[in-house]
Amino acid sequence: MRAILLLACLAPLAALAADPGYVRVPGGDFTTTLQYEDIRGASRVATFEMMARPVTNAEFRTFVQRYPQWRRDRVPGVFAGNGYLDHWQGSLQLSAGAQGSQPVTRVSWFAAKAYCDAQGARLPRWLEWEYAAAADGSRRDARRDAAWRDRILQWYAQPASRPLPAAGTTAANVYGVRDLHGVVWEWTDDFSSMLVTSDNRTQGDPDRNRFCGAGALSVADREQYAVLMRVALLSSLEGRDSTSTLGFRCVREVQ
């Protein structure tokens, strides 16, 4: 009896500790689709490890069992708005619309960050996410391929009301990472760095005091609609927001 109790106590821990399947993304030089005033040409992306698929409902439930302050009935409003996990049947019960194998959505940035912290990981930076997402099954940078871009865009044309596929069911890219396109939107650590604006330091511009310093963002390549939509979404969010199609995955630094 004691052994069973012990096992029952350990089970959530074991599930949390289980390797979520990080794969190595070798670093390289990468030119972001976003155009910043202060960045010319390619940036260096350091090697990192990325979850091969987004975090699932089952995994997130294990997390909130372990860290009950992130249960939807206990989370402080300052960290998560009303929609937080509200597609689950209960605070710890999934539902037909939120199955264990599906990517978790309706999670705030604060909750996603806490999940990755608990893993000894962090949310990917935008540049890392875009770098990994530029790859297809055989190329590290498929962005110039119009057919590839069209395939990605097809997802964006589908209604958001359609049920989410199980996580990890789309084709792996050259790094072994799945679901970067065609499944859910994903939080990035620096979502709030998306300062989308025209040059706001122009004299007479009422917004000119909004930003300190240079570095306003515009877009270098208007062909990359999929990236633009991601940026538009992230730039519109606050940290406590959540949506029915916004999930996340974590990355780890490589020592």
Binding site: Y36, I39, S192, F211, G213, A214, E238
Partner: peptide, 24 residues
């Protein structure tokens, strides 16, 4: 830093020269 900024609704980005772009 990112948590505090998110709580206050402040957007910021570290620039390539180490300066910051941020909403005031």
């Amino acid at each position: 830093v990112s948590t505090i900024a998110a709580l206050l609704g402040i957007r910021y980005r570290v620039l390539s020269d180490g300066d910051f772009n941020h909403t005031t």
